[in-house]
């Protein structure tokens, strides 16, 4: 489903975020990207979300070279993608319901369909009862779960997450990772960047280790 083909990203200033990366992820897989700080995990995800463009090489998604998509095709590309961020990026002046419905409003769905899907997504992360709260009124773990609900509400085939447990204590981290695993169980391909090695160890599954912008190893 995803193929990085000799991808190099050189940032302005000459520093390479990733260098000659080759990586393949099949549909339905759950892959952890690990590595030290500065290893290039975020850069890899940015290339998938078209927040950055590859300097060399091809980023292929379902056989399409997304690295060369024209700027006007970016919105549609992103709508097919679920994204979870370390700082969850919820809008503080909107309710949980409104935050989760944002991708569907952008996609132009009708109001009734939006309400139905938002409630289903909130139910999946166990926060249906908090739909009219503001994000500030939720705990950090709950906020991250709202972020995950927003990422899956548009039913993406691929979900990418950058340090989704970065701000959470070990128990909450495990809870979030179990949530990802459950969503992966219904067929969503997942690419999760984390430096929480202990947690990844505990969960098992495929693990890609980055070092200095290159793939230095894999574990299964």
């Amino acid at each position: 489903m995803i193929r990085f083909d000799n991808v190099t990203k050189r940032y302005a200033g000459g520093h390479e975020g990733v260098s000659e990366i080759c990586l393949e992820v099949d549909a339905g897989e759950l892959v952890f990207l690990t590595g030290h700080s500065g290893a290039g995990k975020t850069t890899l995800l940015k290339l998938l979300a078209l927040i950055e463009r590859p300097t060399r090489g091809q980023v292929l998604l379902n056989g399409r070279n997304v690295g060369r998509l024209p700027a006007r095709a970016i919105p549609e590309h992103r709508r097919g993608l679920g994204m979870v961020f370390q700082d969850h990026k919820l809008l503080p002046d909107r309710t949980v319901f409104e935050n989760v419905s944002l991708p569907l409003i952008i996609a132009g769905l009708g109001r009734r369909e939006i309400a139905r899907r938002v409630r289903a997504a909130l139910d999946q992360v166990g926060l249906l009862s908090r739909e009219s709260s503001r994000p500030d009124a939720l705990s950090t773990g709950e906020q991250q779960r709202v972020g995950i609900a927003r990422a899956v509400v548009g039913r993406p085939r691929l979900l990418i997450a950058d340090e989704p447990t970065g701000n959470l204590d070990p128990d909450l981290s495990l809870e979030i990772m179990m949530l990802f695993r459950r969503l992966n169980g219904v067929g969503v391909t997942m690419l999760i960047a984390t430096h929480d090695l202990a947690l990844v160890q505990e969960l098992g599954g495929r693990r890609v280790i980055l070092e200095g912008g290159r793939v230095s190893g894999e574990q299964d």
Partner: peptide, 16 residues
């Protein structure tokens, strides 16, 4: 700004 950035991340078009 925050709202605009999030909307763009979620795939909002320029027109939106």
């Amino acid at each position: 700004r925050a709202e605009i950035e999030v909307a763009k991340l979620l795939g909002a078009t320029d027109a939106f």
